[in-house]
Each structure stands twice: as structure tokens, then as C-alpha cells.
Design a protein around this nucleic acid. Structure first.
Length: 826
RNA sequence: GCCCUGAUGGCGGAAUCGGUAGACGCGUCGGACUUAAAAUCCGGUUGGAGUUAAAUCCAGUGCCAGUUCAAGUCUGGCUCAGGGCACCA
């Protein structure tokens, strides 16, 4: 064994051997229980960044740990390879996006292999390849047939910079998630997936996800945004065309306090509800609302504005007549697009009524400040007043009673409302899976027959066009025939949102080469759900919600038999440098290639796991890398300079010298601690500190020996071999090299994980802590078998304790066996 | 405004059930080896008081209360930071 550690040399060597011998291939058939470990697959942007390194290292260590613990582990990798950057690069260089993408995949694959990740590359999936997107299209058609994919004209989010529409989930603070450009509203006919059909079950099943963090679950719950309330229909008294206006409210208890009603400027019947005298003002107001960006419109800071329509409604509960207004604080897309206004018990209505001097009527009594809603709305609980037969009722009860009255009277019903909207999946871009439908003048929208899939992306496109999707420039693509009548037809030129492709890739890994189906039911049911999913928190809503929806929809289509895709989710923290996120614009990025070259992959892996628990942000420091490199050198030296005294196949005698027994105990403590730390939330940072403790202990032990007898050699061998196995999931190359140098057979990564003996996984004696009034006063080494009474005597007789308790009254003595004695004195 | 997460030395962080606060590392200080440096090894490192040095004592886990023999850990009330949602009726 070489006396110095040359990571670059040994890493290359073992990566080749592992690949040649297919050490990490996962058989479908096995006697072992299955375990599916998955990292969120990357977009092939060009190079790995440290966030990738962290993500994949975490999952890799989990996969290796489970493999050594007797599981048949599925640990695949693939590429989320459709999307705008490839298309933009193509436009810039005039090349096909596929070429750019392939080059990036090739480079990043090389990097992943340099990191020593244990992937089964035979299962690789690439979403932009026809053998994958064929099945994305096929799944789209299944959803279409079930009525879960549909086309409609709607106000949609448009990003001018990207030249395409966006899903609601892709609009962050009114801006495009990718380019930060301000998003506009446009009326367009677009394809949607009916995720709203699953709103309730997506929300309910969050409770089943015990292996997910609360943060992600609450974010999803907030996004789904369930609220319970009522629909009330208000008769319009002075309009011939519109008989009634339905409103949604969560406060049916305040219905007797309505003093006006607001409809959104985009409300469908607004023109009919406007009297001729008000027409000009209403038109002007609506025109202005259209001009505003989403950000301006939704700002809560803005002073509320509105104009009256001139028409009136009647309150079926009171008979009172109140005016109709339009105001942009009412949203067309939520509820019915109309709001009943109760200024006394809603802050927004209050502000509006104040500004326009609209009347107010208190109907819920504030128990602390009766009848006063002069300065602000009272929105909390109370008792009803001015509400006819409901007076005196608690408002929480009145909600139900009042809605029931509306139901009985035929002018309302109970209603559950969700914030979640259907998922807009069409994109006006080239580099995506083509939506497999055609438009026939005679037969209308027709799905492409399944035996004609995939609808291939055309090659004869002009990427230099501006203002429209490059795909529209291909004549061979757009001009087609109708599958029903054979007549002239036009092909859909929109492609699918890349999030559609990534909503099912984890299913494809179970059966990646299937050319008859996206996956066989048997295989997908065997491997799924994913036992451990690891990725960034930025997908808390987007990818994770879409994937849950897909799984449920595919289950209802009979394609699989489970209802949640990811059993356990680990959202790793960001990789920071100098306290802020690594980014090119800040110039604080660290290139993984450089770390591999200077220190080797094992150092990179060790460091990225060492300083913070996986869920927390991780601050990259050059000194920290250096420290990990030094540690690996220290481990190498330990083995290299004692190699002749260490052998793989040595058994430790039952009876040992004291110092040897102590070391054996420390090894068992390490096995137990490390195994538990990995099992509990993957606390790799403490795992690594335990590696260091064990190495320090072995060095200390060696330092006390001038020569080694056979017992010593056996003990040293046990300690070092155990250390190697414990470190093998992290320092994958170093441990493999050392394992073989010491005579190990096969790969260390195929060895069984170490077991500990509970009797040995503790020190031979224990330290008894003696407290007086809960404060530490003395420590005494004692035998662990001693009874409580004896421990009490020992504590009370300690010279130090005697001195401190002298002249004081001992009120009470608390003895915690094997641990502590607390003496309470006055 | 609502929701989630968090707050422990100079720094990252550790601490099964409430039971020795600060494991391990980084940084730093001192020492050994060396002509010298690097590398390596050994030791100190929460603050304050104390001492030639030690012993020792006091305070201490964001703040204020509480429960308990005992609180970083449990309860109540705050403060601050990060993240999510937000004119959603």
C-alpha cells in the first residue's frame, strides 16, 4: 500500500472497475426487500453545481447504506432535458437544442461518474428522447380520454420574455419563475390538466405523508387553499337580462349586514348589469383594470377603488335593497367573481365603504366593545344582533343555521371552495413534448391515434423566428391529415410544460426500457412508492404537487395501484458561500471539477455532508474542504503505516487486556451511534464526527503501544476494518482501495453493514454525576451494577460532598440509576 | 395579516426519556519536530472572578414568567431571523 494518499489515481481506477463489473446494477428479481432511493433529476444545464453534489451525495449514501443493510436498492438517474435554456441556446447559435442538450448530458454524466455515485445507468431516462416523450404523449392521451385534459379559452399568465404562457405555480410574486420578467394576463385558448378534480384528495392525503416535513405539507395545503362557506343567490331587481347574482362567502353569519355587492371588473354579466347612465364610468374603470399588471392589481397596499353599476339587488334574508358596484378587489377567477360586502365585519369592505361613504350595519357584537365598528371592522367571534330570528346566536353556529335557511328557501347552498386552479400545460415553444392532437375543420379536435406515437419534433424548423414558436415554421409538422376523415388537418403546435415530463419519470425508472407501455403495472407496483426522495425545497409546490396529482390520476386510470409517489421526502438546504446562495451573478460559485481535481471526490463527498444536517443550509468554506482532505489523509496514514498488522479475516478473542477491551467498546459505540444517526433523519454531520472520534481513539490506542502482540493485532484489525465499512458509503474510493490492500474479497460496497453488541456498546465503568440542588458538584467513577442505595451512599460519602453539605439539612436525595445523584439541601 | 421553520462559543454545529451544555470540526493561541518552511504530532480555547500556576467560585443555550429535586429540552407570553401564502370574500 502506498504511504501517501493519491485520490485522483485510486478514484479513476475504481470508477472503471465498478462500471466494468456493473457493481451497482439493480436486478428486478431478488429475495431481498426493495428500497427505492431517488434524487430529483437535473436539468442538463451544462455543469454540475454544488447543490447537485449535495443532493446526489446524500441520496447515494442512503442507497449504499440500505444496500449494505440487505436491501435490493433501486438508485437511478436521468435528465429533465426539455425546456427553454436549450431552445435559447439553439436560437443564439442556430443549432438544434438537442445537440446542445446531448453535449451537456455527456459532460454532466462524466461528472456524476467522477463523484462515484452508485447509479444503475441501465435505467437512465432522458425526457427529450422519443422513447420517453412517446409515453408522455401517451399518458396525455389517457388523461384526455378521461376528461382530465381539456382545452379552454381563459385569462392566462403570459411571459413576454419567454414568449409563452405559464402555470399559476410558475408565477412567483407576479413574475416568471425562470426569467423574473413581469407576467401579463392574456386571453388565449390553452390546454389544461384538471388537477382541481383532485384538490380534496391532494389535501386530505397530506396526512398520510408522515415522512414529509411540515413545511412542505403546509405549503401544499396553503396552495390548495380549501375554505368552507356558502353560495347565496341575490335577486337583481332592476335588470331584465340578469335575474340573480350568486356570491361565495365564508361568512354567511354576517349576511344581515350586507350594504352593497361587488363584482369583478371582468365579471361575465357586468355589461348587462350596467345602466346607461353608468356605462361610461364603468367602461373606463374596466379599461384601467385591464391595463394594470398583476402586481399592481394585487397589491394590498393600494387604496381600493370602484364604481357603481346603477343596478340593485335584494337581500333575501332581510328584504333590504342594496346597490351593485364593480371594484378590482373582487377577483374574477375565485368563487363566483362576486362578493357580498359587509363593511362592519370585513376589513376590505370596511376600507371601501369608508372611501365611498357606503352604509354600515353591525350584526356581530364585539364582546369587549359592543356595537362599535366605527374605526375598524370586527372580524372575530361574537353574538349576532340585528339579524332577526338569529339574534343572540353565536356566530360560529349561525353560519350553519343561516346557510340552512338559504338552502330551505332555495336561494343558497353549502359550498367548499379551493384556491387551486387547473394546471395550464401548453407552451408556445419548440423544445418540449408535442401535444398529440390535430385540428380538423370537419371533425374538430382529434387525438393522435396511439399507434402513431410519438409525434416527433420536426427538424425543419427556423430557430431565428421572433414572436412565435419555432415549431410553427415547420410545414411537414403543421400540415397533416385527420385520423377520422382523412381530410386536411392542422397539427397542434404547442408543446407540453416540462413539469408534465417530470411528473412521471420516477415511474419510468422501474421499467425504463419498456417499449409497449410507459411501465408495466407489476414493476411499477413492485418498486414504487419511492422510499426516500431527496431534492430542493423549491419544488415544494410545483413538481411535488404535480407528481402527486399524476400518481392519483394514473391510479384512477388503472395503470398503478398506489396513491402517493414519495413515501419519505428530504428537502435539502441550499449550498451557500459567505452566507449567500452560490450564483454566477454573485461570483461566489465553487466548481465541483476543481474540487475533484485538487482533493478528489471522496473529500468533496465527505465535506458536503460534514458541517450541517442535510435539511439545513450549508456554508461552503475552503478551510472546511481542506480539513476533510486532511482527515482522509489521516485515515490513509493510519492504515498504510499499520497495513502489515491488519488483516480482514481476524477474530477478536473473548477475553482482552483492559486497554484492548476499551477500544473494542469504542468501536461498538461507533457502530451503534453511526447506524442510529443514519437511520434517524440521515444526520450525516454527526456520523462524520463519529468517524473522527473513532480514528482519534485508534490513534490514541496506538500511541500507547510500543509493539503489537497477536491480541493487539486482532483488535487493531477489527477496529480498522469496521472503520472502513462504516466510512464506505461516504469515502467510497478510499475505503474500497484500502479494503483490497488489506486482503478484502469483492467490493467493500457489497459487504454487510456492521452489527454491534449492546453489552459492548458502552464504557466498562460509568461516571456518576453528583449534584447539589441540581448543580454539578462531583463526578465519581462507579461500577454500573450498583444499586440505588449504594449509589446514594457513595455520593453522600464523597469527601467533597461531605464538605459542601456540612451543617446543612438534607431534604431529599434523588437517585437516577447508572447516571446521577441529586442531593437537595436547605 | 396568516402559516411554517429556526435562534446554543469567534464560526459550522453536538447534546435518545427533562439528568455532566458546548461532542466533532473550522479558526486561533502555545508547544514538539525542522537550518527554515510545509506536512505531521501534542496541548489550550464560553465569559467573568481567582491564583506564580493550580484548585476553586459565579454567570451562561434570543427575552420574560412558570412547572420540576433538576429545563437548551416541557408550558404560557413575547422578540428577532429565514421561508411560504396573501384584496381568495
Amino acid at each position: 500500500m502506498k504511504s501517501s494518499y493519491f485520490p485522483q489515481e485510486i478514484e479513476k481506477k475504481w470508477q472503471k472497475i465498478w462500471e466494468d463489473e456493473k457493481v451497482f446494477k439493480t436486478p428486478d428479481e431478488s429475495d431481498k426487500p426493495k428500497y427505492y432511493a431517488l434524487s430529483m433529476f437535473p436539468y442538463p444545464s451544462g455543469k454540475l453545481h454544488m447543490g447537485h453534489v449535495r443532493n446526489y451525495t446524500i441520496t447515494d449514501v442512503i442507497a449504499r447504506f440500505k444496500k449494505m443493510n440487505g436491501y435490493n436498492v433501486l438508485h437511478p438517474m436521468g435528465w429533465d432535458s426539455f425546456g427553454l435554456p436549450a431552445e435559447n441556446a439553439a436560437m443564439k447559435h442556430g443549432a438544434n437544442p438537442g445537440v446542445w442538450t446531448d453535449e451537456n448530458i455527456a459532460y454532466m454524466t462524466k461528472q456524476l461518474k467522477m463523484l462515484g455515485l452508485s447509479y444503475d445507468w441501465d435505467r437512465e431516462v432522458t425526457t427529450c428522447k422519443p422513447d420517453y416523450y412517446k409515453w408522455t404523449q401517451w399518458l396525455f392521451l389517457q388523461l384526455y380520454k378521461k376528461g382530465l385534459a381539456y382545452k379552454k379559452e381563459a385569462a392566462v399568465n403570459w411571459c413576454e420574455e419567454c414568449g409563452t404562457v405559464l402555470a399559476n405555480e410558475q408565477v412567483i410574486d407576479g413574475k416568471c419563475w425562470r426569467c423574473d420578467h413581469v407576467v401579463e394576463k392574456k386571453y388565449l385558448s390553452q390546454w389544461f390538466l384538471k388537477i382541481t378534480d383532485y384538490a380534496e384528495v391532494l389535501l386530505e392525503d397530506l396526512d398520510k405523508l408522515t415522512g414529509w416535513g411540515d413545511n412542505v405539507k403546509t405549503m401544499q395545503a396553503n396552495w390548495i387553499g380549501k375554505s368552507e362557506g356558502a353560495i347565496f343567490r341575490f335577486p337583481v331587481i332592476d335588470c331584465d337580462e340578469v335575474k340573480e347574482i350568486p356570491v361565495y362567502t365564508t361568512r354567511p353569519d354576517t349576511v344581515h349586514g350586507i350594504t352593497y355587492l361587488v363584482v369583478a371588473p371582468e365579471y361575465k354579466d357586468i355589461e348587462k348589469l350596467t345602466t346607461p347612465e353608468n356605462k361610461e364610468a364603468v367602461e373606463a374603470y374596466r379599461a384601467n383594470a385591464r391595463k394594470m399588471t398583476e402586481i399592481e392589481r394585487l397589491s394590498t397596499e393600494r387604496i381600493k377603488t370602484g364604481v357603481p353599476l346603477g343596478t340593485h339587488c335584494k337581500n333575501p334574508f332581510t328584504g333590504e335593497i342594496f346597490p351593485l358596484w364593480t371594484a378590482d378587489y373582487a377577483l374574477a377567477e375565485y368563487g363566483t367573481g362576486a362578493v357580498m360586502a359587509v363593511p362592519t365585519h370585513d376589513e376590505r369592505d370596511f376600507d371601501f365603504a369608508k372611501k365611498y361613504n357606503l352604509p354600515m350595519k353591525v350584526v356581530i357584537q364585539n364582546p369587549e366593545n359592543p356595537s362599535d365598528c366605527k374605526n375598524e371592522a370586527y372580524v372575530d367571534e361574537g353574538v349576532l344582533i340585528n339579524s332577526n330570528e338569529f339574534n343572540g346566536m353565536k356566530n360560529t353556529e349561525a353560519k350553519k343555521a343561516i346557510t340552512q335557511k338559504a338552502v330551505d328557501g332555495g336561494f343558497g347552498e353549502f359550498k367548499t371552495q379551493y384556491r387551486l386552479r387547473d394546471w395550464l400545460v401548453s407552451r408556445q415553444r419548440y423544445w418540449g413534448a408535442p401535444i398529440p392532437v390535430v385540428y380538423c375543420e370537419k371533425c374538430g379536435i382529434q387525438p393522435v391515434p396511439e399507434d402513431q406515437l410519438p409525434v416527433m419534433l420536426p427538424e425543419d424548423v427556423d430557430f431565428s423566428v421572433v414572436g412565435k414558436s419555432p415549431i410553427t415554421t415547420s410545414k411537414t409538422f403543421t400540415e397533416t391529415t385527420c385520423p377520422i376523415c382523412g381530410g386536411k388537418a392542422r397539427r397542434e403546435t404547442d408543446t407540453m410544460d416540462t413539469f408534465v415530463c417530470s411528473s412521471w419519470y420516477y415511474l419510468r425508472y422501474s421499467d425504463a426500457k419498456n417499449d409497449k407501455l410507459p411501465f408495466s403495472k407489476d414493476k411499477v407496483n413492485h418498486w414504487l412508492p419511492v422510499d426516500q426522495y431527496v431534492g430542493g425545497i423549491e419544488h415544494a409546490i410545483l413538481h411535488l404537487l404535480y407528481s402527486r396529482f399524476f400518481t392519483k390520476a394514473l391510479r384512477d386510470l388503472g395503470l398503478l395501484d398506489f396513491d402517493e409517489p414519495f413515501k419519505n421526502l428530504l428537502t435539502q438546504g441550499m449550498v451557500l458561500k459567505d452566507g449567500s446562495k452560490m450564483s454566477k451573478s454573485k461570483g461566489n460559485t465553487v466548481d465541483p471539477d476543481e474540487i475533484f481535481q485538487n482533493y478528489g471526490a471522496d473529500t468533496a463527498r465527505l465535506f458536503i455532508l460534514s458541517d450541517s444536517p442535510p435539511a439545513r443550509d450549508f456554508d461552503w468554506s475552503d478551510a472546511g474542504v481542506e480539513g476533510c482532505y486532511k482527515f482522509l489523509n489521516r485515515v490513509w496514514r493510519l492504515i498504510a503505516s499499520n497495513a502489515e498488522n491488519i488483516s480482514v479475516n481476524v477474530s477478536v478473542p473473548a477475553s482482552l487486556k483492559k486497554e484492548n477491551d476499551d477500544l473494542i467498546r469504542l468501536v461498538h459505540i461507533a457502530i451503534k451511534g453511526i447506524t442510529n444517526d443514519i437511520s434517524n433523519d440521515f444526520q450525516f454531520n454527526t456520523v462524520i464526527s463519529k468517524y473522527r472520534e473513532l480514528v482519534n481513539s485508534i490513534y490514541d490506542w496506538l500511541g500507547k503501544k510500543s509493539s503489537l502482540d497477536n491480541e493487539d493485532k486482532a483488535v487493531l484489525s477489527f477496529a480498522v476494518i469496521t472503520l472502513l465499512k462504516l466510512m464506505s458509503p461516504v469515502a467510497v474510493h478510499l475505503t474500497e482501495e484500502a479494503w483490497h490492500e488489506l486482503g478484502g474479497e469483492g467490493s467493500i460496497h457489497s459487504q454487510k453493514w456492521c452489527e454491534w453488541d449492546e453489552n459492548l456498546a458502552k464504557a466498562s465503568s460509568i461516571t456518576l454525576v453528583v449534584q447539589i440542588n441540581g448543580k454539578l458538584k462531583d463526578k465519581i467513577d462507579v461500577d454500573e451494577a450498583l444499586s440505588q442505595d449504594v449509589l446514594k451512599e457513595i455520593a453522600l460519602n464523597s469527601p467533597k460532598i461531605k464538605e459542601l453539605t456540612d451543617g446543612k439539612t438534607i431534604v431529599k436525595v434523588i437517585v437516577v440509576p447508572k447516571k446521577l445523584v441529586n442531593i437537595v439541601v436547605k
